[in-house]
């Protein structure tokens, strides 16, 4: 009887979730649809010189041409790998340093001022220096992007660690947990959602910095593609580059959010 009731409730809950997902998908399509309509009508009315702003059709054609000769894939792959590699390096270091800074008060007091200084410093500001240090090859880009991924993630992780509720540690101690067990079974599970948040923030910053890094010196990558297009006054590939960066960054964020939903289903959500 009670089970049946619960089953019924669960079904209704699932149906509601499904409806919400469809609703969200609908709004997604509509809002982008409107964006494209505005784009085309602005051109049609003549508010913008059509030479300076390509039609959707032209951008799609540039996309197809790029896909056919493989140059688009190559650029996307180059950018993607840069972001992924430096994101991985940045997050790994952020987790390690986040723990050190969050766990040891002395380390925190010592490093806090410096952290805040570097956090306030936009990663792009490092590019000229890094080019002198490491040349215009991959290394300088990886350093700048890893740096971009590192700071926001580390700050999220260490602040989460500082803000943990000590009641769970006390509860574990009174059940007989040792220090390592407290770390593995109490601290880590509570940090998982924050580490995922850190990943989201870092990925966003990484993509934002990527283009700046590629604009300056790169043969491959979406940023490089855009610079080439700019040099030859090819508006379609230029706009295509912008759309690609937005779309890939959105897709990556959606992926992280999907992981987040699975990993944090135990949390009480505001919405």
């Amino acid at each position: 009887m009670e089970n049946e009731e619960q089953q019924c409730l669960e079904d209704r809950f699932k149906a509601k979730r499904r409806r919400e997902r469809i609703e969200k998908g609908g709004y997604f399509l509509v809002s982008f649809g409107i964006l494209f309509i505005v784009w085309e009508s602005v051109r049609a009315v003549g508010l913008i010189d059509p030479k300076l702003f390509p039609s959707i059709h032209a951008v799609m054609k540039a996309c197809l041409v790029g896909l056919k000769d493989g140059s688009l894939q190559m650029h996307i792959y180059a950018s993607f790998m840069r972001v992924l590699t430096s994101f991985a390096i940045g997050i790994l270091l952020a987790v390690i340093f986040g723990f050190l800074v969050g766990w040891f008060r002395v380390v925190r007091l010592f490093l806090d001022p410096v952290i805040n200084f570097f956090r306030a410093l936009p990663p792009i500001a490092l590019i000229p220096l890094m080019i002198i240090f490491f040349g215009i090859g991959e290394t300088s880009k990886l350093v700048v992007l890893s740096y971009a991924a590192f700071f926001p993630a580390m700050v999220v992780i260490y602040q989460a660690l500082v803000g943990l509720d000590p009641i769970y540690i006390r509860a574990a101690k009174t059940l007989g947990a040792g220090n390592m067990e407290i770390f593995r079974k109490i601290i880590l599970p509570q940090l998982v959602p924050h580490i995922i948040t850190a990943c989201r923030v870092s990925l966003g910053v990484c993509w934002a910095t990527l283009v700046a890094a590629e604009l300056i010196a790169a043969q491959k990558g979406i940023g490089a593609m855009m610079v080439d297009a700019q040099n030859f006054f090819q508006m379609a590939p230029l706009v295509l580059g912008i759309l690609m960066i937005g779309a890939i960054s959105l897709a990556m964020d959606a992926m992280v959010r999907a992981v987040e939903r699975r990993a944090t289903s135990w949390q009480e959500k505001m919405a």
Binding site: I167, Y168, R170, A171, P189, Q190, V192, W266, Q267
Partner: peptide, 10 residues
């Protein structure tokens, strides 16, 4: 404890 302290992730 008064604040329950039941582990919310389990």
């Amino acid at each position: 404890f008064q604040q329950y302290a039941v582990f919310p992730w389990l």
